[in-house]
């Protein structure tokens, strides 16, 4: 069921969008690291790549519930997802990690601390993700903002292969308006809050690029098994 709004709103379409995005939020996914295998870099990376592959399936299903996404051409739907998938994955990790200190909650059963990050060779990348966590912690990002920002990251992914840029712009406008309307109603004390949230997107893009490059180089080494969808999305980004 949709969560009730915290304050009465104007009943406009835009707030319906935030409510709709809350309902469309996927169920949590577990990492399920193999307990019979001793911890190693390969095990950690295999666990993360398998988790990402399963999350991608869910993200593709989720995107279809963003109002206006499914009316885009199939080509444009693919282009947006191919550009934004890592940003969407990272926003999920970041949101799950907001109530943790210096740990990244890739899944409820897979929380990476500094030691595990070092073991996996992910110390640099995870430090970059923790910088995003700190940013959203300081903003006290709430769930409504998280789901709206995720949809905005998808619509605003700057793919070079968009066929109908007017339709994509319309999608961006609808989501932007939803965020502004939500902030106007729920955070009227800070008139710059929507802007502050949008200003986090460059760091998200930068961190996602770093993550894709890192996992692409892992793919080239060939030591970590990767599922087909994850590989397909990784190859679409480089």
């Amino acid at each position: 069921l949709p969560q009730p709004m915290k304050k009465p709103c104007n009943g406009t379409l835009v707030n319906k969008i935030v409510s709709h995005l809350l309902v469309a939020e996927p169920e949590k996914i577990y990492a399920m690291p193999d307990p019979s295998i001793p911890d190693s870099d390969i095990k950690a990376l295999t666990t993360l790549c398998d988790l990402a592959d399963r999350e991608l399936v869910v993200i593709i299903g989720w995107a279809k519930h963003i109002p206006g996404f499914s009316t885009l051409s199939l080509g444009d739907q693919m282009s947006l997802l191919q550009s934004a998938w890592m940003e969407i994955l990272l926003l999920g990790v970041v949101f799950r990690s907001l109530h943790f200190d210096d740990e990244l909650v890739f899944a409820e059963d897979y929380v990476m601390d500094e030691e595990l990050s070092r073991l996996a060779g992910l110390l640099d990348l995870n430090s970059a993700i923790l910088q995003l966590v700190r940013k959203y912690k300081s903003l006290k990002l709430d769930k409504e903002e998280f789901v709206t920002l995720k949809a905005i990251a998808l619509a605003n992914s700057d793919s070079m292969h968009i066929e109908d840029s007017e339709a994509v712009q319309k999608l961006q406008d609808v989501l932007h308006e939803a965020l502004q309307d939500y902030e106007g109603n729920q955070h009227s004390e800070d008139v710059r809050r929507a802007g502050k949230l949008l200003m986090t997107l460059p760091l998200l893009r930068q961190t996602a690029t770093k993550a894709v490059q890192h996992f692409y180089s892992i793919k080239l080494e060939g030591k970590v098994p990767m599922h087909k969808l994850f590989l397909e999305m990784l190859e679409a980004k480089v």
């Binding site: 996927p26 399936v57 279809k64 199939l74 397909e232």
Partner: peptide, 20 residues
């Protein structure tokens, strides 16, 4: 689309959507 056939299939196939 040949290079991206899983994404293409999942977008076309309604079965991947989470139940709402």
């Amino acid at each position: 689309t040949e290079r991206h056939k899983i994404l293409h299939k999942l977008l076309q196939d309604g079965s991947s959507s989470p139940d709402i």
